[in-house]
Design a binder for these strands. Structure first.
Lengths: 226, 226
DNA sequence: ACAAAAAGTTAATTGTATGTTAATTTAATG
DNA sequence: CATTAAATTAACATACAATTAACTTTTTGT
């Protein structure tokens, strides 16, 4: 995660809220808090956090209900949710999962476990975006840190745009990207360049990495094949 | 999940292995078992399960070590892992997360919780696949995103018009479309092309995907049969 | 059974998307 | 500020998908 993950904590007990806030900030997260479900949904819409820690037991709208609502709101539905349940009780745990929670933890909170869970979830969720620095396809390895491709143990250093194009295509191997998608993501929506620019870069990549790697689907776009 | 999720259970205790196997099969999973880390990795490479349930305490290579190894193998690294730990002890739990586990559960196993966790993880993980727009007819799969047809595990990449025609026909399997309907929807109302154009495209599709797939109803049109 | 219509087939043609190379502009670096 | 490399453009070539044309086979109705 290249930018701080945003976490929204929802609990009616101020002590717990403060305790968690303090510790999660210390862990490097960007922390927001809320004391009830309604307010939490409102805040979530503004902040779009990466993860919400949600107390099950709350006056008014409880955690499970809040979760259900969140899961019905399009821009929020993919936000990760960890339930905090007061009792280590099966029922509420399972209800939580059904409501769409991704994990739960029981009070009293064991901080290290909570943090582990948060990190594990964020890691999994951001699989695409993750900066593993080296994407390994066996034959070919892409070293994001060094703008380098390793092919059969020889290093090939690529210039910026070529490398970015490669990384973008390789981010979803075998997935076809349309020319527009590629242009928008690699060149950005504002910059307008000619039609042939993309082809020339593809050419350069094929020249350096072999012709088989990037496949054309005529009329549509290109894909990185492994 | 349109196809059964594959789960590999790794535990040195045959009783637990059998207990889990029995219950998970009952839940509709495809279950494989292994009694040690080395064997598990071997099996995982062959099976490529969706999820591995891994006992932490095992003679020889323990669960944490096994997990670490799995996470270093490219084709396996995205497999979900749930740890089974004998004691509700923080250390091993956290070590598990660091090693790359996605969840853990403590013995004695509460079956319903385990199943909830499995389903929650699979659900989250399969989010990507849900989005990939694959129409699955068993024998043949149409990957809308990639303009590709998968037949008997081989990928056939189709050119634009052929693919669009196929997708249109496959949008309502077994439904008969008239030539006019097809022309209007695939070629659009404005473009006027000759009578034989459609036939030639049908021909190409049958050539690539087999003759049985698209059936002619003389005097009317065509249908995609499954 | 025969003619007429519809669809199948193959090869040739056409048109467009992409490939290619070299020249030019832009940006990075010492 | 000069030098060098990268990015982009321009001009042209190529490849292949799409279509058409010409011909054959199958179906259908009388």
């Amino acid at each position: 995660m290249d930018t701080k993950a945003k976490i929204l904590i929802v609990d009616d007990e101020p002590d717990i809220l403060e305790f968690l806030k303090y510790n999660l900030i210390k862990e490097g997260f960007e922390v927001y808090t809320s004391t009830n479900g309604k307010d939490a949904i409102q805040k979530a819409k503004e902040i779009i956090p990466d993860l919400i820690i949600l107390d099950v037991m709350m006056p008014g709208m409880d955690g499970i209900e809040t979760c259900r609502e969140i899961k019905q709101i399009n821009i929020l539905k993919n936000i990760l949710i960890i339930f905090l349940s007061a009792r280590a009780e099966d029922y509420s745990q399972i209800a939580g999962y059904d409501a769409g929670a991704d994990d739960y933890i029981t009070k009293p909170i064991k901080l290290r476990i909570l943090i582990s869970k948060i990190k594990a979830l964020l890691k999994r969720f951001s699989l695409d975006e993750i900066k593993t620095n080296i994407i390994d396809f066996g034959e070919i390895k892409i070293d994001k840190e060094n703008y380098t491709v390793v092919k059969k143990n020889i290093n090939i250093s690529l210039p910026k745009k070529e490398f970015e194009l490669l990384v973008f295509l390789a981010s979803k191997p075998n997935r076809l990207f349309t020319r527009d998608e590629i242009m928008n993501r690699v060149w950005g929506t504002s910059t307008i360049v000619g039609e042939r620019t993309l082809d020339v870069h593809i050419r350069k990549l094929r020249e350096k990495l072999g012709d088989d790697l990037i496949k054309t689907v005529k009329g549509v776009g290109f894909k990185f094949e492994v």
